[in-house]
Each structure stands twice: as C-alpha cells, then as structure tokens.
C-alpha cells in the first residue's frame, strides 16, 4: 500500500448532488403541514374571538361592583356576582376536600397495592374509565336522588360539593395513577431493598415523588368542576341567591349558574353583566391552569 493519495478522483459531483437533493415531490409535505396549521388555527382563533367578544361586551361592567355587589333582578345596573363568587369558592373548597383524599388514596391502592392485571384491578379500571365518560348531567341526577333527597342534604353547598366530587373523582384517580406510574420502578426497589414495607415505600417515596404530577392533575380536575353548570342546575342551584353561603348546609349559587341565569334574561344590562362574569370565570380558570403549569415546570422530574 502506498501513501494515501490525496488526489484520488472524487465521484462525479453531479451524481452525488442529484442524490442528496432527493426527488420526492414537496407537495404532499406542504399540504400536510398546511392541514396541521389550519387545524391549530381553528382552535386558537375560536378561543381568541370568544375571549375578545366577551371582554369587549362585558367591559363596561368589569369593575369592582362585579364582586362587591349582590345579584339583583330589579336593578341590573347595580347587580354584581358576589354571592356567585363566594358560592363557587365554598363549593370548590368542599369538592377538593372530598375528592382529593379519596381519589389519591384510591389511585395509590390501584397502582401500588392491588395485584397488577388482576381481575379486580381490571374491573375497577374499566369502571373508572367509563365513569370519566359519563355526562355530568347524570351525576346531577345521582346527586339529586342520593345526596339531596335520600340523605336529605337539600339544595346545599355540601350536596353540590359531593356531586362534583363524584364527577371529578375519576379524573383525579386517573391523573394520580399516571403520576405514580411515572415514578421509576427502581426508586421503589431501592426502598424495598432497604427493608422498607410497601406502605412505607408508597408513603415516603412514591407519593412524594409523584406530587407534582398529582397536583397538576388535581388542579385541572378542580377547574373542570368550577366550570360545571349542568349537574348544579338539576340540584336546584338556579334559585335567586343574594347572600353568601354561611356554611356547608347553606344555599348557594356559583359563577356558571349565575351566568346561565343572566343570559336567560332578555334585558341588555344582564347580557353585559353575564359577559363580564364570563371573563371573571375565564380568568379564574386560566389562573388555575397556569398554576398547574407552574407546578409542573418548577418541579421537573430529575430521573
């Protein structure tokens, strides 16, 4: 072998060039990208138009009277949504109180303690997935029959909270399970290999490691509950309420219900008021979703 000959003839450049440039028609590529872009635009533009519309329409009433004043039928120009705001907070607070521990413990049982792929687990799993797909109005019927009538809790904050808890329970369970599943197996193995019990492992390793994921899922579930009107309509929340709830058994109204009531009214002032309240509800929901994103980003998984 002689020394490497630097002057080796290169392959015909034109041929290489032809190969590198490729011969696939770019048309299909572009058409596909266009389809993706249009789909994205439909969603984003619709939302933007909606937000712009309600903001512009509700602008005159987007001031402090919205949360300092109570609803009023006779004097729309002075009506506010205070009782609906406090009602929403009461209902959501109790919903969180009922749904979170139940959902998280249920998910922990399914994910960490029951036999994987056992008959019981599969049965429960299918059930939970189906429950998540049940229309919310059906939960309203259940709440009316069971909590309001059978348990005689009536048209109270507690009835609404229990009903909404059932509604979001499947979402809490599913998202908690996802978060638990994302915790690597080797962390559990490491804990068990040190002589920790399964309960200690779940409580001291898996659950804390899954908390960011759980928090994200839980906030999203609660923001779903905040926006719900259908089941509450059935539970008799439509009544005209001009007072803040005073306790779990108190009467209440919520933001979606108040919006529903006002949009039913033909007077223009109430339409404006409804738009302003929609903006308020949207801000609340966006804030919650933002908090969820914040939690997720601040506690990036490190494994």
């Amino acid at each position: 072998m002689s020394a490497p000959d630097t002057a080796a003839p290169l392959a015909a450049p034109s041929q290489v060039q032809a190969e590198l440039l490729g011969s696939r028609p770019p048309l299909r590529d572009r058409a596909f990208r266009l389809a993706l872009f249009i789909s994205l635009t439909i969603g984003v533009v619709t939302l933007a138009v909606l937000i712009a519309y309600v903001t512009i329409k509700g602008w005159p009433r987007l001031n402090s009277t919205l949360w300092t004043n109570m609803p009023s039928i006779r004097r729309p120009e002075r009506a506010g949504a205070q009782s609906a705001i406090t009602g929403t907070l009461w209902v959501i607070g109790f919903t969180a109180l009922f749904a979170l521990p139940t959902g998280i413990l249920a998910a922990l049982h399914l994910e960490e303690f029951s036999k994987p792929n056992g008959r019981f687990q599969r049965l429960v799993e299918v059930n939970i997935q189906n429950l998540a797909a049940v229309p919310s109005i059906v939960y309203g019927i259940l709440g009316l029959a069971f909590f309001a009538r059978a348990l005689a809790l009536g048209q109270s904050v507690i009835t609404a909270s229990l009903t909404l808890s059932l509604l979001i329970l499947p979402i809490v369970i599913i998202s908690t399970r996802e978060a638990l599943r994302a915790v690597p197996r080797n962390i559990r193995d490491g804990s068990l290999a040190l002589g920790a019990t399964e309960w200690q492992t779940a409580y001291r390793q898996t659950l804390p490691a899954a908390i960011p994921g759980i928090a994200t899922g839980v906030i999203l579930a609660l923001s779903r509950a905040i926006g719900e009107a259908a089941p509450l309509l059935l539970l008799g929340a439509v009544t005209f309420i001009t007072f803040n709830p005073t306790g779990p058994l108190s009467g209440y109204t919520t933001l979606p219900i108040q919006i529903f009531n006002w949009t039913k009214d033909s007077r223009e002032e109430f339409q404006i008021l409804a738009s302003a309240t929609i903006v308020l509800l949207l801000v609340l929901l966006l804030a919650m979703n933002f908090a969820a994103i914040l939690i997720r980003n601040r506690t990036q998984k490190r494994w």
Partner: peptide, 16 residues
Amino acid sequence: VRRKIGMVFQKPNVFP
C-alpha cells in the same frame, strides 16, 4: 430478609 441482605442496583437509584 432485605434488612439483613442489602442490595445495590445496576443504575444508581438514589432517592429524590
């Protein structure tokens, strides 16, 4: 048994 017989795994599985 696992208290008496410890284990070190292939991938360092430190706890978070």
